[in-house]
């Protein structure tokens, strides 16, 4: 088996939260992410979905090492980066880039688009200034903007155009991994499809691996190969995208799918919503004998394999 582009092994992140307001405040640990493992195979797009507070963004930031994990390992192309310091991370940063939802605040308003796109080349000392500008202009073209945009500033662009610039800047160093955190959520409907198509095209052309963090399941369905569902800091289900849509096993995944608005008014229905307690109570219980792979019985949910590439958080009964 080939080495995955990105692998998280049992990664956790705890934050200290103020618990008591006495003279000397007391703190308690809150696990924003608790023991998450996920793998992005080379040349694939994996969707990471979940509600706000599920830990999906923190997971993405840990993969980038913009947030240091409390425990666990992060491997990029097989190399463990979880303990690297600032200097050691610099070559890794070339391999791994990020695009955010709010591209406006992510682009320096005082720089021209050519400068913005060329900046990573400059930081990593690739090529002469002239070559850097040439490369930046050809990247603007590649993401669907005219070369003449090179002299413009971020405020002159629409949201979709800014997102194209952010993508060009992220990909100019030819990384192997791209983390995309809700890159289409702030975009107009007619532009959203453009950016989704751009990401698909670039992924194929560059043999790129993408972690696509999103709460929009419709976009995830059209864009990704696999889906990982997070709920309250943990992975509750993962499978190939179509298996998630056709054969979801975890109650939270089903709740998410059920919440997708109808695509046609004739499909309207009255929904019943599950409370947190109901979701927990509905955690699947699977008999050990039925599982295709060996698993120890447990009282708390654990991720178990239930089919090819399909894992779900379940309580394993003897």
């Amino acid at each position: 088996m080939t080495v995955p582009a990105l692998e998280l092994r049992n990664v956790s992140k705890d934050y200290l939260i103020k618990a008591g307001g006495g003279l000397i405040p007391s703190y308690r640990r809150h696990a924003a992410v608790a023991g998450v493992s996920l793998t992005i195979a080379r040349n694939s797009i994996v969707g990471l979905v979940g509600e706000s507070g599920s830990g999906k963004t923190t997971t993405g930031m840990m993969a980038l090492r913009l947030v240091k994990p409390t425990s666990g390992r992060i491997l990029v192309n097989g190399v463990d980066i979880s303990q690297l310091d600032h200097k050691g991370l610099k070559p890794v940063r070339r391999q791994m880039q990020v695009v955010f939802q709010d591209s406006y605040s992510a682009l320096d308003p005082m720089m021209t688009l050519a400068q913005i796109v060329a900046e990573p080349l400059d930081i990593h000392g690739v090529g002469s200034p002239r070559e850097q500008t040439d490369e930046a202009l050809s990247w603007l073209e590649r993401v669907g903007l005219d070369r003449s945009y090179g002299g413009r500033y971020p405020h002159e662009l629409s949201g979709g155009q800014r997102q194209r610039v952010a993508i060009a800047r992220a990909l100019i160093l030819k990384p192997t991994v791209l983390i995309a955190d809700e890159p289409t959520s702030a975009l107009d409907v007619s532009v959203k499809a453009q950016i989704i198509n751009l990401l698909q095209d670039l992924q194929e052309e560059m043999d790129l691996s993408i972690l696509f963090i999103s709460h929009d399941l419709s976009v995830v369905r059209s864009l990704t190969d696999r889906v990982v569902v997070m709920y309250r800091g943990q992975v509750v289900e993962e499978a190939e995208t179509e298996a998630i849509f056709s054969d979801a096993r975890h109650p939270y995944t089903r709740a998410l799918l059920d919440a997708i608005p109808a695509a046609n008014p004739r499909d309207r229905r009255v929904r019943r919503f599950l409370s947190v307690e109901e979701i927990e109570a509905a955690t699947p219980r699977l008999a050990r004998s039925e599982l295709p792979e060996a698993a120890e019985p447990s009282q708390t949910p654990q991720l178990v394999s239930i089919g090819p590439g399909h894992r779900v958080a379940a309580i394993v009964t003897p």
């Binding site: 959203k192 419709s218 976009v219 995830v220 369905r221 059209s222 995208t241 179509e242 849509f245 056709s246």
Partner: peptide, 8 residues
């Protein structure tokens, strides 16, 4: 509209 038909 994305997600209308299955498959990437």
């Amino acid at each position: 509209m994305p997600g209308q038909i299955g498959g990437r």
